[in-house]
């Protein structure tokens, strides 16, 4: 592993922009295209938003963001110690949201899956959720 960084932020929505820009700045070391950076920023935004709205249900908590850079890959872990997901498979379904009253589109996981090359979800109800996402930079598509 060539480089890593760890970030801890309070689960406030005002930190969403900060989180995505920080991860993008770190990812810049791999010389990504504008589009690859936009993909990463969006995926991070989705995951962090989920921690705030679902993990901590808009109450105070800490969101942990760990990034690792390998030769041409960025690995991003986004962790909360909130509610946890009862049924991960259902949560990952496009258009499914457990909070329709908040005008959520239910597209968060779908976007993470589309914009990143790999995503793993680990969750324990009452303990928290960990998302691990990877993206290969500079891949010829």
């Amino acid at each position: 592993m060539d480089n890593e960084m760890k970030l801890e932020i309070k689960s406030k929505s005002s930190n969403e922009a900060f989180a995505r820009v920080t991860v993008a700045a770190f990812a810049s070391q791999l010389d990504p295209t504008f589009e690859e950076l936009a993909d990463i920023k969006t995926a991070v935004s989705e995951a962090v938003t989920n921690c705030i709205i679902h993990g901590y249900e808009n109450k105070d908590g800490i969101i942990h963001i760990n990034c690792k850079l390998f030769d041409k890959t960025i690995e991003i872990e986004i962790i909360d110690f909130g509610k946890g997901i009862e049924n991960v498979e259902m949560a990952r379904q496009a258009l499914y949201t457990s909070k329709p009253e908040l005008d959520r589109s239910g597209m968060g996981f779908t976007i993470m899956e589309s914009f990143m090359d790999e995503i793993k979800v680990e969750s324990i109800v009452g303990m928290g959720t960990k998302i691990v996402m990877k993206k290969n930079i500079g891949e010829v598509k």
């Binding site: 969006t42 935004s45 989705e46 938003t49 589109s105 976007i111």
Partner: peptide, 13 residues
């Protein structure tokens, strides 16, 4: 310059 799925939710509403 940036929009995520929260924006899609807002638009749909």
């Amino acid at each position: 310059s940036f929009m995520d799925s929260s924006g899609i939710g807002m638009l749909l509403r």
